[in-house]
Design a protein around this nucleic acid. Sequence first.
DNA 1: CCAAAAGTGTTTGTAATACACCCATGG
DNA 2: CCATGGGTGTATTACAAACACTTTTGG
Lengths: 243, 243
Amino acid sequence: MTTTNALNENINTWISQINKEYKAAVSVDCVIFGYDENDLHVLLLKSDMPPFEGKYSLVGDLVTPNETLDESAERVLFQRTGLKDVFLEQVKTFSDVDRHPLGRVITTAYYSLVKLNPELFKIQEGNSKLKWKKVAKVGELAFDHNSILENCLTQLRYRLRDKPIGFKLLPKKFSLKQLQNLYEKVLDIELDKRNFRRKLKALDLLVDLNENQSDVNHRPAKLYSFDQEKYERKRKKGFNFEL
Amino acid sequence: MTTTNALNENINTWISQINKEYKAAVSVDCVIFGYDENDLHVLLLKSDMPPFEGKYSLVGDLVTPNETLDESAERVLFQRTGLKDVFLEQVKTFSDVDRHPLGRVITTAYYSLVKLNPELFKIQEGNSKLKWKKVAKVGELAFDHNSILENCLTQLRYRLRDKPIGFKLLPKKFSLKQLQNLYEKVLDIELDKRNFRRKLKALDLLVDLNENQSDVNHRPAKLYSFDQEKYERKRKKGFNFEL
DNA sequence: CCAAAAGTGTTTGTAATACACCCATGG
DNA sequence: CCATGGGTGTATTACAAACACTTTTGG
């Protein structure tokens, strides 16, 4: 009942197929999430490709013959933002036959996390087609990019509960309030202040910097930083983040 | 500071790149997990491709111009096993530049879950190069397939705790012991019988068939089946599996 | 009646939740 | 001295974990 014999699995078939038409353009698309301590944003680019002229799209590019997908995503991120060594995670590969108007383009989606500081915010100024949009207010995007964005957002939310990646969206020094805000904003939930703080204390991954906020017209908050090395040590001993 | 101006993001660049060398062969590789109520197996194929002659590899194929990756994975699964409508999940895309000896082949990994019955076991007989190997005893595979297998196994274990997919590895009617065995074997953990049963009762997703095992030389176990529709209804109400 | 696996409750510890008041600072 | 957000503890409840004996069947 199996159809094994119908298959020709020898090398020559592969060689001829690879060299003929069995090739596709391959791209990466990056969902670059930026957090400015108020809203989660995503970096978009105004498209000039028919039939999507004027619509926004994610930033992406074709994968060159001598780079991996990871490298390609890093390159795209660097070319668009000037940032290196940024968190990037592969999410899913999208392959609908008609997803791209110029022909078959199979694309792999990545998301990345950056702190949105004023300098980064500027990349959308001038004649640039780049735009930081609030994720909650993204409208219809070009290609299948709404679907890609949705998948990446789901993945981000999943990971945020699972791994300590939230810190990548905050400055090195932050208050517990800032951290809680981040979780509330990105996950779109409300958290109890006291329970949140207790849980974080129990995780024992923050360093108390013995510094305070300044220039705030209320009691200044204590500042903390995330201890990546401590986390790695704990993780290796079988510890799990689980917020 | 941004390098936006160095980018040429207009259509003509795309068209010329797509039509020139910016193409790659694209394939799928399927980690077909089979469970025989004792061990988790994976379907492998003896390779004849230098330099991997004689080594086993996962089953896979090039993606044809008119099919999606999902469809391609379904096709591979059907061609190798004769099975349709089987659980398949995309895991990750692998893109090391030198991962394939015949040139650049970017591959997307899927895993799938099948019940290993005697009929399915037969596909490795005769002159077939197919082989069901115990996952625990898989040696060195061709290409980067050890890495792919590992990623898929991790994903399977993750999902097993998260979504009710374990039932796909069992016959329609099963005992609670069979179910517990499955979890223990695949996750490589030990579970407490009473706690396991209590938890499953609490999830309220099994149908008591009011049938018993027969022809066993001990007290026969009650048989249950998984209620997919009940699960979907619960899931839509915000219920989570979480074993 | 023996072997082999099925089936069943209770106790104890730990983590999640809910909740309200005082504190420090800038203006 | 007032407005603003920062910071803290306790009581209750739900869930996880540990654990041992009786029941049913086939041989």
